[in-house]
């Protein structure tokens, strides 16, 4: 699937790699949001008819409305054709930037790599770079490798030689909490 590039990206990407302090990351993230919106719309209509350029342009405009891109002169019709090198707004290539966002656990970073061909985003890769274990957990879950919820079976129904857990692991602790319970009893 290819998606037309939203118009908010800068006409000349300033870097090809790195964690530049330019405003690009935020725009890349905005573009990513637009890509997902367009992607969903495109898939829905993919079998029946080619997506209408107008509706794509509208979505792009909406998606970029919140960005601080200058956007003048690069809007509306700019990328409608996209294939012609002469009218191409963006240099082909692969662009990587780092964006940051505020998660419930604090600020997090995410790396985004976008491949552009003739003003069309042909590939998007997102590399999470979390510091926070909660975020790591959720991001891993997106990436797979996590099983569904654990399923318990009664030990009485199992033929096992040993049990490995922690219900018995600290006699001193358990004695102390039992003592507290008994002290606290009325």
């Amino acid at each position: 699937m290819t998606v037309r590039l939203p118009d908010a990206l800068p006409a000349t990407p300033s870097t090809t790699t790195g964690r530049a302090a330019s405003p690009l990351p935020r725009r890349v993230l905005t573009a990513l949001a637009a890509v997902s919106i367009l992607g969903a719309a495109g898939c829905a209509g993919a079998e029946a008819e080619p997506p209408a350029p107008d509706s794509q342009a509208e979505t792009s405009t909406e998606a970029s409305a919140g960005a601080d891109a200058p956007a003048s002169g690069a809007t509306t019709e700019a990328g409608a054709g996209g294939a012609g090198a002469a009218g191409q707004s963006y240099e082909d290539g692969t662009y990587t930037e780092t964006g940051s966002y505020q998660s419930p656990a604090g600020p997090e970073e995410v790396g985004v790599t976008i491949t552009l061909e003739a003003d069309v985003v042909t590939a998007v890769e997102v590399e999470p770079m979390p510091d926070n274990p909660t975020t790591t957990m959720y991001q891993e879950r997106f990436a797979g490798g996590i099983s569904d919820a654990i399923v318990g079976r009664k030990l009485d129904d199992l033929a096992v030689d040993k049990v490995a857990g922690s219900s018995l692991t600290s006699g001193g602790f358990n004695e102390a909490t039992d003592k507290i319970k008994s002290d606290a009893r009325l």
Partner: peptide, 17 residues
């Protein structure tokens, strides 16, 4: 030997062996 992995929320159960 076979060892049960005690269910973290239910010491009467295991989540696997």
């Amino acid at each position: 030997i076979t060892v049960a992995l005690e269910h973290p929320y239910d010491p009467t159960s295991a989540i696997g062996t």
